[in-house]
């Protein structure tokens, strides 16, 4: 609208009531807390609703159930589901296959009893009381765990079989990838082609390749689980060192941190007799069990495993 048109509009006086209300507002401004109270009236219920929905979703995810297909011989008998806290048992003639969410499967051999502990997206956990399972997991590391009385198998992207008896004595055999076998701060890293025993009260032993000489694996059994008899320990270690092949640096690398200082130098010397240590691995640091040094060495040795 132009100024010319505006000039033709009549001037009308505003009603007094408008000025009264404006003045009243200026005399009594609205209290500063008022928008806050309004905000709280909206946000508190909204937060509560979000909290309830979140908790409900979380509890639902904890209750995610896995499908189990039971078979008797070659015959599929029925399908069921299993959730956290529930047990699954097979008799001497039956077996089962369990889907571990979307990340893999667990075959449950005859004569096995296990319990599902957690079915969360970031933690899938079983407890194997006795029997044998074969796990195939396709997921990033540390999403799938199998506890036993003497060790926990932590999946690092792998395929493996594990057998354990009621007392917790057992054997882990890895066919693809890596498994970390852990108990009370003790860790055995087991790559494809290798095995690791575990014993009640002692935890996981030292891993060894399945094609290792029988004399080495027998000596390793004595070394790991003989109860720490010094003389026997020395004899067993001497056999291990004498019978080790280049590939058995897997075993020797683990032994570095499981022997006393006197024995550690012998293990180190035997390892470097197979291949010189890579750059970044100094003798004194390796003997001092410097974690970074040991990791660099392990990563290089893995090319021979």
């Amino acid at each position: 609208m132009s100024d010319r048109h505006l000039s033709h509009l009549p001037v009308v006086k505003a009603p007094d009531a408008i000025w009264d209300s404006i003045e009243a507002s200026l005399r009594n401004p609205p209290p500063a807390g008022r928008p806050w109270r309004w905000n709280l009236r909206v946000w508190i219920p909204a937060t509560a609703v979000l909290l309830v929905v979140g908790l409900w979703t979380l509890s639902r995810s904890h209750r995610t159930r896995w499908e189990v297909v039971r078979t008797n011989g070659a015959q599929q008998t029925h399908t069921e589901t299993i959730g956290p806290g529930e047990w699954l048992q097979t008799d001497s003639h039956s077996s089962a296959e369990m889907q571990v969410g979307a990340i893999g499967t667990v075959e449950i051999e005859p004569g096995t009893r296990l319990r599902v502990i957690a079915t969360r997206p970031n933690e899938n956990r079983l407890s194997l009381q006795h029997g044998e399972i074969a796990a195939t997991i396709s997921a990033p590391p540390k999403l799938f765990f199998v506890e036993t009385k003497s060790a926990t198998a932590v999946d690092l992207g792998c395929q493996y079989r594990m057998k354990v008896d009621d007392s917790g004595n057992g054997l882990l055999r890895v066919t693809r990838g890596w498994v970390s076998f852990e108990w009370q701060g003790r860790e055995s890293l087991v790559p494809a082609g290798a095995s690791c025993r575990t014993r009640a009260g002692a935890g996981p032993g030292t891993p060894f390749f399945e094609d290792a000489p029988g004399s080495l694996t027998a000596a390793l059994d004595a070394f790991d689980f003989s109860g720490g008899k010094a003389g026997g320990n020395d004899a067993a270690l001497n056999t291990i060192l004498a019978d080790a092949r280049p590939r058995d640096t897997l075993t020797l690398w683990h032994l570095l941190s499981r022997v006393d200082e006197r024995q550690r130098a012998l293990v180190y010397d035997r390892m470097v007799s197979f291949a010189p240590p890579p750059s970044g691995v100094a003798r004194e640091k390796a003997l001092a069990l410097d974690p970074q040094t040991l990791k660099v060495w392990k990563d290089e040795l893995a090319w021979t495993w």
Binding site: A139, P140, P141, L156, G157, C158, Q159, R176, G177, W178, P191, A192, G193, D299, A302, W303, T304, W305
Partner: peptide
Amino acid sequence: LTIGNAVAAQTYRTKN
């Protein structure tokens, strides 16, 4: 060249 088993790559992506 150095040749190694799949585990040498230290990643779950190469396990197969």
